[in-house]
Design a protein around this nucleic acid. Structure first.
Length: 422
RNA sequence: GGAGAAAUGGCAGAGUGGUCGAAUGCGGCAGUCUUGAAAACUGUUGAGGGUCACACCUCCGGGGGUUCGAAUCCCUCUUUCUCCGCCA
């Protein structure tokens, strides 16, 4: 959520930056400023009314103490109108504050100046590419065929137990999955991230804190009985660790990592591009999350990008990095880099990581602050990224490492899997 | 799931209707003293809104109510603790 004082003082900038998302925000921003002014003027009026009745109440208290009951009763009679006025004003204030809040919830983060204009993934900017795309033998298969051939992932079984998008991993497939998770967590903790095991269900306040709620309920599974949501990413419980928190400046930066299953409804997705592991309702992911000083968040973002690069290079997977355009950058993010691994058998790039700086957008919702050098509470910056998402990495490994007589296991994973080949 | 108790500032812990935003202790910060440190002493020390700055307003787990006036009384929700039941 953007900060109202910032909007007030940087109106032109906000409008211009939001246009990177193809949003014409002029009317919205004007409304924010008008509603905020309205809210403040009602607040002032209410404050004055309350101040008056407070002082009368004190006077009454004093009169009762000194036994002047008659005089007290005279004053009591005067409070009726004030009470009525403050009641009305409170209602008006709440109404104005609610409208303002509702409007602010609809405004996405303003993109970083480096974010390219654009609406679709075609406008994303490739900023880096690494690794050779392997030449596969003539009978090379896409991963869903390989999964069947080597009996390591059973999509039909998942279909039977739950439904589409809930695959069952088995044998060496399950072991490889577990190896990847452990490998990622080890790499992340080596890089200084503290490992956490987090809840997979979150409450409404947490969903609001990171920006999934309100309005984007559609992407999450909702347990209505208890009003809890299945997490779409560890970002939600992981970042909400710091909701309503005032940190010391010396506590920064904070880096945490966690493995969680992720659940996404992905309503409306269908077709060939969601085949196999390409898009699932339940998948595994290892996430890294950072809380940073505002002056250091962009160098931290670069650090996270380099960290993810390192993992992909260790796995020897061909990948590229995209700077997402305004239209493709998620609601809460100011700048996002996507990592894509080349799926050789499908002849397409698959997103395996998304690394973002949210600046103060989440912190403002979360009330995540630190005490700065002046002793003032200041909003921190939050960042997160996948390091890494499992299914498409698995797809990439299966496809890129396939040979005529089996699938090789990347060198760095062998100590985790205990086998060299599937 | 049943019965009972509790929720106050960074922490501990007073406060049961009227200058209580809240005693006191610890912790933090600043100062005095000291070559320096410790100890001791003095001062200071929550958050949000509002203002050029004051004033002023709100917040004692959340929400609602009673009252001229609520940390204090009532209702409700949540959480924690104790006992019982159940259980990886």
């Amino acid at each position: 959520m953007l900060q109202v004082p910032f909007i007030r003082e940087n109106k032109a900038l906000v409008i211009e930056r939001l246009s990177k998302r193809n949003i014409n925000a002029i009317a919205m921003i004007d409304d924010v400023i008008a509603l905020d002014e309205k809210r403040r003027s009602i607040q002032t009026e209410l404050d004055n009314t309350l101040a008056e009745s407070n002082s009368i109440s004190k006077e009454i208290g004093g009169l009762f103490k000194s036994g002047k009951v008659e005089e007290a009763n005279v004053l009591k009679a005067k409070t009726g109108a004030l009470k009525e006025a403050s009641k009305t004003l409170t209602e008006q204030l709440n109404q104005a504050a609610d409208s303002l809040q509702e409007l602010l919830f609809q405004i996405p983060n303003i993109p970083h100046e480096s974010v390219p204009n654009g609406n679709t993934e075609d406008d994303n900017e490739e900023v880096f590419r690494c690794g050779d795309i392997p030449k596969l033998h003539k009978d090379a298969l896409p991963h869903w065929e390989l999964a069947k051939k080597y009996d390591i992932i059973d999509f039909d079984l998942g279909n039977k137990i739950t439904g589409a998008g809930f695959p069952v991993y088995k044998g060496k497939g399950a072991k490889l999955q577990r190896a990847l998770i452990t490998y990622f967590l080890d790499k992340n903790t080596e890089a200084g991230y503290t490992e956490y095991q987090l809840p997979l269900l979150v409450n409404e306040a947490s969903g609001i804190g990171t920006g999934q709620l309100p309005d984007k309920e559609g992407q999450m599974y909702h347990v209505t009985e208890d009003n809890l949501y299945l997490i779409p990413t560890a970002e939600v419980p992981g970042t909400n660790i710091f909701r309503n928190t005032v940190l010391n400046e010396a506590d920064l930066p904070i880096g945490i990592t966690g493995y969680t299953p992720c659940f996404r409804r992905e309503a409306g997705s269908y077709g060939a591009h969601v085949r196999g592991l390409n898009r699932l309702h339940q998948f595994d992911k290892v996430e890294i999350i950072r809380v940073e000083h505002p002056t250091k968040s962009y160098s931290a973002l670069d650090g996270m990008v380099n960290h993810v690069k390192g993992i992909l290079e260790a796995l020897k997977l061909p990948y590229r990095i995209l700077r997402l355009c305004g239209g493709d950058t998620s609601f809460a993010s100011a700048l996002t880099y996507d990592f894509e691994v080349f799926s050789t058998a499908q002849d397409r790039w698959l997103e395996v990581s998304s690394v973002s700086n949210f600046e103060t957008f989440q912190a403002n919702r979360l009330k995540l602050r630190f005490k700065n050098a002046d002793g003032k509470n200041e909003l921190a910056h939050t960042l997160n990224g996948s390091a890494l998402a499992l299914p498409r990495i698995l797809a990439g490994i299966l496809e890129n490492y396939q040979t005529e007589d089996g699938i090789e296991i990347p060198e760095v994973l062998r100590e985790y899997t205990g086998f060299h080949k599937i």
